[in-house]
Amino acid sequence: MAWIQINTVVKEALAEPLSDALMESGACSVTFEDAKDQPIFEPEIGTTPIWSTTKVVGLFDAETDAKQVIETLTNLLPEISAQHYKIEQLEDKDWIRAWMDQFQPMRFGDRLWIVPSWLEPPQADAVNLMLDPGMAFGTGTHPTTALCLTWLDQHAPEGLNVIDYGCGSGILALAANKLGALTVTGTDIDPQAILASQQNAQRNQADIPFALVKDFDSEPVDLLIANILAGPLKELAEEFDRLLKPGGTLVLSGLLATQAKELQRHYQSIGIELDTLKTNEEWGLLAGTKSC
């Protein structure tokens, strides 16, 4: 099926109104893109990141009258003149196949592989996680996920009880399970993450219970790993302390390397020494133990 895109670049305040106008004008979907290379490292939880200068793109069926759409848009949002909109034809191709082709098997550490569920594992005798990225964060491509997976490969949680806090696609919970953990549980604030995690657990024949944070509780465990953001990592310090056994290990990622010292000081104040820092690009991972 062929498509067209209608797009323009606007200031932050107009991004959401334009998105609404595009949907009202018949768009199948609307996406936001960074128009000026302005990375957003830590958006507030539950929000959609919007850049100060944002490219807003509406996707339409190729049979759509683009000029009529733009006329409708200018009536709905007269702040944006018609000449600012661009119309682009999209190549007619198999978009699902193009999306799938983006993902290839990835190796972390010595023996851990993340393999898209539609591909064969490169090494049948390795520790292979068959993963469907779905709509949840966590495919192994982000530096923080890679840091966590490599740490797990190097510190296999054999015989340990583990919590994956902020499970996303369930990738870290699955890795812990495959690497010999005694029990693994996972939690997230996003229902889509719970669904994706459950589906990936079934795909890997792994018995891992996942629950929304509001429904989650656990006895203290040997290892808690959280790949979220620096702000929530700081806010959750007392909860992590409660969920961790004395002498247990805490692994935190999702933080920028420049945020590590502040988090180390904060956790030290409650008796958790995060004395290991690993970095990948500008991102960091902290690991350490809770005092006995």
Rank of each mutant, 00 (worst) to 15 (best):
V213Q: 11
K245V: 08
H155F: 10
W118A: 10
N7I: 04
G166T: 07
E281S: 13
A237M: 13
A230C: 06
A136R: 01
L224F: 05
I70E: 07
G248D: 06
Q202A: 14
D20H: 13
P143D: 13
G284N: 06
D94Y: 01
K67N: 12
W283H: 09
P157W: 11
D215I: 09
C167Y: 06
A146C: 07
Q198V: 02
E219S: 14
N7F: 14
Y85D: 00
T53L: 15
I96W: 04
L179R: 07
I45H: 04
T276E: 15
G168Y: 06
F103D: 01
L277M: 09
D215C: 04
A126H: 09
D222S: 09
T187L: 07
K245I: 04
P232D: 09
M130K: 10
F103A: 01
D94R: 01
Q264L: 01
T64S: 14
I171T: 03
G186F: 03
A175E: 09
D110A: 15
I270A: 05
T144H: 09
A201N: 06
A2E: 14
D110K: 15
D241P: 00
G134S: 06
C292W: 08
L274C: 03
T258Y: 03
W95N: 11
I189Q: 07
T72D: 12
A230M: 02
L73W: 09
S197P: 07
D20F: 09
M100F: 03
G231Y: 08
D92Q: 13
V221L: 02
Q104W: 02
A156G: 03
G231C: 03
W113G: 08
L236S: 14
R203Y: 03
E79T: 13
Q199Y: 00
K290G: 08
C167M: 05
F108H: 06
V57E: 05
I96Q: 14
A237T: 13
T72M: 08
L22V: 11
L119S: 07
S291E: 10
E238T: 14
L22I: 12
L277E: 12
G168A: 04
T185P: 00
V57T: 15
E16I: 14
